[in-house]
Computed example of a mutant assay.
Amino acid sequence: MSLTFGGVAALLDVDLHVAEGEIRAVIGPNGAGKSSLLNIVSGLYRPDQGEVWFGDRSFREVPTSKLATHGVARTFQNLALFKGLSVFDNVLMGLAHRVRAGLLRQIVGSPLARRIEAENRAAAEEVISFLHLSEVQDRMVGTLPYGLQKRVELARALVVRPKLLLLDEPFAGVTVTEKQELSQHVRNARDSFGATIVLIEHDIGVVMELSDRVAVLDYGRKIADGTPDQVRADPAVIDAYLGVAHEDDTELAI
């Protein structure tokens, strides 16, 4: 797919295939087009050329209002949490699309509305426990350390049990210990919840250790795609990150 802004190319003929059940990383220097790619997949941008496929369905413009019903969830580089609400209520917000009972029936407490509410609360409690957030579930999100807020946003995305989970720089701004913990939670999300994961991340060490396959963008083009070992040793990737000449046996230092 391709995408331009005012004549400036953000993406040029980029294709990205994600296999079911894998952790797929997209890396590249600042301005490489990583966020633009994720924004297309999540419906925030419409590509000038190309389509997005979810299974056997293709979209010229992804319907953002129906992402959850298509099995897609996303976290953001800048936390999109409600700081004045509790952890539990923030996670519960991820299930707003399930409320189909109608306002009137909710007001009068219809059996359908009560059943949906009970199911949503049970789902929120399950993912909160899964991510070891039970001890803080009643605290306002704004009072939590940044690393825990990152985990809350992951919980809100996971509560819908997505088939495809998009993570936009999930490790940015957290400590080394928090990165290790969050990496394990991402693995567990794939292994226990069956989510296919696409992540954008600047920490190359985390990417190489966590991902099954890695795609590398530079100036809007895909310059490499393969396993972490293949990408690490690719001369084009070394040049993109280091901006220096390379020898044939040079590897990307991480």
Rank of each mutant, 00 (worst) to 15 (best):
A118R: 15
P47R: 13
D191S: 10
D191K: 07
R60E: 15
V72C: 00
E247A: 14
I223L: 06
L166A: 01
S2E: 04
R105Q: 13
A224Q: 06
G21I: 01
N90L: 05
P47K: 12
R139Y: 04
G220Q: 05
G147F: 01
V108P: 14
G109A: 09
L95C: 08
F193V: 08
Q230W: 07
P29E: 12
V216D: 05
T69C: 05
V72L: 01
A124V: 07
Y146G: 02
L112G: 08
A189V: 06
R114Y: 12
G33R: 00
R98C: 08
A236D: 15
V174H: 02
V41P: 04
E61Q: 11
V62E: 04
P170M: 11
E51H: 14
G102E: 14
P162F: 01
R151S: 07
A189I: 04
R156F: 07
P111H: 13
I204C: 09
V52A: 00
A240L: 02
A19D: 13
G50N: 10
R232T: 10
I23S: 06
E119Y: 14
T227R: 03
V214K: 05
E135K: 13
D191W: 11
L37S: 02
K34D: 13
E119W: 08
T250H: 12
P29W: 07
Q230T: 12
F193D: 02
L16W: 08
R213N: 05
L148C: 05
V152Y: 00
G33Y: 00
V99K: 14
V91C: 04
H202I: 05
A172W: 12
A155E: 00
L104H: 11
H202W: 09
